[in-house]
Simulated assay, not measured.
Amino acid sequence: MTNNKAILSLISLFLLLGGCTSTQGFDAKAQQYNDPKDPIEPFNRAMWDFNYDVLDAYLLRPAAVAYVGVMPQFARTGLLNMAENLEEPSNSLNNLLQGKIEGTFISLGRFVLNSTVGLLGLIDVASELGIEAEEEEFGEVLGKWGVGTGPYLMIPAWGPTDIRSGVGDVVDSSYSPLDSLNFYVSFFRTGIKVLESRAAVISQEQQLNSSADPYSFVKSAYFQNLEYKVLDGKVLVSEEEEALDDDIDAFLDDF
């Protein structure tokens, strides 16, 4: 699962961008749209192509390349720290709603520490002291409460999502201080995160480009990533798999 986590972490960056590869060479008309999680797959595939062939090719990727080329690394790190610091109160409340009391206080402590000593979050003092972020989204809260994901959606200029995650994003944006940001500050914060996410995967684009069907690959990774986050990285193992693991362990113990 460790390797899967690394792959899903990589793919999740692509998911924020609406996909960063083309479905060129894939005959969508020949595809049987029978995925119950993707009832409007023809529409979603069209949006996937639009996101990549137009938005990413002519806007997002060039902007990310220019951002990396012009902005010094220390400035990029500081701006990203500030953007992520604004999310700590929502992390705290979402931890609380899942009964994660330790995570609740960690997120609150990080916000107070970084907002004061860290100069409004410019410096991630908390991480330097070994207090790592406990990121939680309201979509994960709903998942913990047993709410299903609902249909898969590929939204123009937004990318992959689902009903549960969409509702979660709306709720997360209503938490203070995110709800009190004016349009320009909110746009700047979102822009920094998107540019950093896109820049982080430029060197990894070939991984998706080599897939026979990038759309299905990302969709599968998207739902795996959702499940991974809701389960906090725990792997669900069937009784048969568990019995097999026990047999293997017993066999190895004989040596």
Rank of each mutant, 00 (worst) to 15 (best):
K29V: 11
Q32F: 10
Q32P: 07
Y33I: 03
Y33N: 15
N34K: 13
N34A: 13
P36L: 10
E41S: 08
P42T: 01
P42Y: 06
N44W: 01
A46M: 10
M47G: 04
W48P: 08
W48Q: 01
D49V: 06
F50W: 02
N51F: 03
Y52T: 05
D56W: 05
A57D: 12
Y58V: 11
P62K: 09
P62H: 07
A63S: 13
A63L: 13
A64F: 01
V68Y: 01
G69S: 10
M71H: 06
P72D: 09
P72K: 07
L79R: 05
L80C: 10
M82Q: 08
E84H: 13
N85K: 02
N85T: 12
L86A: 11
L86C: 03
E87L: 14
E88V: 02
E88C: 10
P89N: 03
P89K: 02
S90I: 12
S90A: 14
N91R: 03
N91S: 08
L93E: 02
L93V: 14
N95G: 05
N95I: 04
N95H: 05
L96A: 09
L97G: 00
Q98Y: 03
Q98N: 01
G99Q: 03
K100A: 07
I101G: 06
G103T: 00
G103N: 01
T104V: 04
